[in-house]
Design a protein around this nucleic acid. Structure first.
Lengths: 198, 198
DNA sequence: TTTTTAACCGAATGACATTCGCTATTGACA
DNA sequence: TGTCAATAGCGAATGTCATTCGGTTAAAAA
C-alpha cells in the first residue's frame, strides 16, 4: 500500500555503524555520525532501527555467528583431543572474546548502558553455547555429558571475563596468563577422566 | 590560606552515591540526585570529585576491600584445603562478584562508560589479586607457586565474567552452574598434584 | 490517475554531565 | 583582631546526545 523500506539503506546504516563502532567504540559513536556515514538523516535511522542498542545488536549477531563458524572449522581440523581443546580455548578467548576489531567491546558497552526497554534476543547466546558444547563433544568423544556441560559453562564464563577486560582493565592483566591457566585446568579435568577409565 | 573542604560534605556525597548506585545502578543515578540526597548543589559535587566516574570508584574501593577482608576470615576459618577452596570460590564469585547490593554492577557500568580521561588506580586490583594469591597459598600449603599464580588468574577471570553477567545477561545463565564447574576443575588440578606427589 | 501510507527530513525535546561567573566563608598572617 | 586571598558553594549556563515530532513527498495499490 505504500512506500517500502530500502534494503540498501538498511545495509548502509549497518555498514556505517560497523565501521564506526570498530573505530571509536559504541559510546563514542553517535547516531548522527552513523547517519552521516550512511548518507541519510538522523531521524531516518529510527525508521530502520528502534534504538542505538538495536543497531549494535544487529551488527554483532552476524559477526559472532561467522566467527564461531570459523572457529568450528579450525577446531575440527585438529587431530588430537588436546589440539582440539587448545584450539577451541585459544580461538574462543583470544580470537573472539579479545578480538582486535572491537566488536566484543562494542557489545559490552551496549549491554552495560542498555536501558530497561533494550532487550536482546537470547537466541544468539543459546546458539553459541550449543556450538561450544558440540565442539567439546567432538574433541572428547565418549565424555560424560555432565562434564561437557560443565566445560561449556566454564568457557562461557571465561568468555565473558575476557570480554569485560577488553574494556575495563585494558592491559592491566595479561590475558594469556588467564587463558593458559584455564587450559591447564581443563587438561587436568580431562586427564583425570582418562586415568580413572584406564 | 583559604577555606577547606569539609569532610562531612565529602562523606554525605559518598553515602548518597552509595545508596543511589545500589538502588538504581550507576547509569540511572544522576549527579543531580546525588547532590540533592547529600544536601548540596550539583556544582559543588565537582569541588569534591572530578567526575561521576571518580565518585563510583571512591565508593567501590572501600566496599571491595571490606568484602575481601571478610572473605579472608571466612576462608581461614575452614579446616580442610577442600573447604578453604570451596569457601574461597563461593565467596568470591557468589558473595562478591554477584553481590546483591549491586556494587559490582555499578563498577561494571562505570568502567564500561568511562571516558578517555577517566582512569582508575590499579592499586585496588593489585591488592585484590595478592589477597587471593595469599588465600590460595593458605589453602594449599606447599603448592607450586606457578600453580598458585594460575589459580589466581583463573579466579580473577571468573570474577570478571560473573560481574559482567550481573549486568548483561541477567538471569540468562545460571551462575551456580559455572561456579560449580570451575570448582570441579580446580579440584581436578589440585588432586592431580597430590596424586603425582604420592 | 488518484489515493494513501510510510519513508524521509529538519527542527525540536529532554536528559545529563560538566563548566562558568559570582558570592560568601574562612584560614593565615599582619 | 582586622585584612585579604583563596576557594567552597551556588544557580544558571553549555554542549552533547538519543530520541521524537510535524510536515513533505515518493511510490505502492486502486
Amino acid at each position: 500500500m505504500a512506500r517500502q523500506k530500502s534494503e540498501q539503506v538498511r545495509k548502509a546504516i549497518m555498514e556505517a555503524a560497523h565501521r564506526l563502532f570498530m573505530e571509536k567504540g559504541y559510546i563514542a559513536t553517535t547516531i548522527s555520525s552513523i547517519a552521516r556515514a550512511a548518507g541519510t538523516s538522523q531521524s531516518n535511522v529510527y525508521v530502520y532501527f528502534a534504538s542505538k542498542f538495536e543497531i549494535a545488536f544487529a551488527v554483532f549477531d552476524p559477526w559472532l555467528r561467522a566467527k564461531v563458524a570459523e572457529l568450528e572449522e579450525q577446531v575440527m581440523a585438529q587431530d588430537t583431543p588436546e589440539a582440539c581443546l587448545r584450539s577451541l580455548i585459544d580461538g574462543l578467548l583470544h580470537g573472539i572474546a579479545a578480538d582486535r576489531s572491537g566488536q566484543t567491546l562494542t557489545l559490552v558497552q551496549a549491554l552495560a548502558t542498555a536501558k530497561p526497554g533494550d532487550e536482546y534476543n537470547p537466541d544468539l547466546l543459546i546458539w553459541t553455547m550449543s556450538r561450544i558444547h558440540n565442539m567439546i563433544g567432538g574433541a572428547l568423544p565418549g565424555s560424560d555429558p555432565a562434564e561437557r556441560e560443565a566445560l561449556t559453562h566454564s568457557l562461557m564464563l571465561a568468555f565473558d571475563g575476557i570480554a569485560l577486560r577488553q574494556n575495563l582493565r585494558r592491559g592491566e592483566i595479561e590475558d594469556s596468563l588467564s587463558v593458559d591457566a584455564l587450559y591447564m585446568m581443563v587438561r587436568a579435568l580431562v586427564d583425570r577422566r582418562s586415568h580413572a577409565s584406564s
